[in-house]
């Protein structure tokens, strides 16, 4: 079986610093694959290259065998590969519902001029966006905050909003950069369930960067481990937990974080 997404010998250099060195791995359809590693290991950089937010120095990323690296972010998004951000990244003066509606840009059937003149297709789009937004917010358990302005939301909800905006694009592959950051245990567990149902019910392939090891071990089908820009391991959660190199890398930084 050929992979859905292939990362092939990808290297990223920032001046003298090698953030990613010759990284390769495959992602199969409907998989939840986590990328873990200590701070500064190069996880976010890898995501940025997959989503074409930054070009690779060498190597390439293929989706259905077609190169998606070194393009423009909106073109990759159009193909169905959508990322969320590690830092809080929201439309701050929009409500939750407005954000999720604007994020359905790629689902539009009418042209921009069509919306201006209010054609039939445009009106149908607008109605469909509203329905989909409400359905999505319901699915994410965010209906009660749908008319809140984004910049008034507490941290935990901001993360969820980031995921909601990503999901609103109806992606094929969703790249989540630390979606559980700043969440307490219960919120994290809820989010874990959500991410799993995104995969199960919506057929979205998920790539995840996370530091929360229990959550990662719980949710992942497979894990790729980075350390100082190098891939040091790849395998199932149990394989990773018992991998000598991984334990060493983590003991070097955060004690005992990997055991669960």
């Amino acid at each position: 079986m050929s992979a859905l997404l292939q990362v092939k010998n990808v290297t990223k250099k920032y001046g003298g610093l090698t953030a990613n060195n010759n990284i390769s791995f495959d992602v199969s359809e409907n998989e939840i694959l986590s990328v873990i590693g200590p701070n500064g290991a190069g996880k976010s950089t890898l995501f940025k290259m997959i989503s074409s937010f930054t070009p690779t120095t060498s190597g390439e990323v293929l989706y259905h065998g077609e190169r998606i690296s070194n393009l423009k972010p909106h073109i990759v998004a159009r193909k169905g590969i959508v990322r969320t951000f590690q830092e809080t990244t929201i439309f701050k003066s929009m409500t939750v519902r407005e954000s999720v509606i604007v994020a359905q840009h790629l689902r539009a059937k009418a042209s921009l001029a069509g919306y201006f003149w209010g054609t039939k297709t445009a009106k149908e789009d607008v109605a469909a966006f509203g329905i989909y937004a409400d359905e999505l917010l319901e699915f994410l358990g965010m209906s009660s905050i749908s008319s809140e302005l984004a910049h008034n939301l507490p941290q935990g909800n901001l993360r969820a909003l980031g995921v909601a905006i990503g999901l609103a694009t109806a992606p094929k592959v969703l790249l989540l950069d630390e979606p559980f950051a700043g969440m307490n245990h219960d919120e994290t567990m809820q989010m874990v369930d959500l991410v799993r149902s995104v995969r199960d019910e919506r057929g979205v392939t998920v790539l995840l960067v996370e530091h929360d090891m229990p959550a990662v071990m719980n949710i992942s089908d497979r894990i790729v481990v980075l350390n100082f820009g190098e891939k040091i391991a790849e395998g199932s959660p149990s394989e990773i937990q018992n991998n000598e190199k991984v334990i060493e890398a983590y003991l070097g930084s955060v004690d005992d974080e990997i055991g669960m």
């Binding site: 423009k72 909106h74 951000f85 439309f91 604007v102 921009l112 201006f116 990503g166």
Partner: peptide, 26 residues
């Protein structure tokens, strides 16, 4: 224009360009 989709997309990129391009806005 401002109240149509084009206006909404303008608002999205004015508020956060990176997020706007991540959702496919050219």
């Amino acid at each position: 224009l401002v109240n149509s989709r084009l206006g909404h997309l303008c608002r999205s990129m004015q508020q956060n360009e990176e997020l706007a391009s991540s959702i496919g806005v050219n």
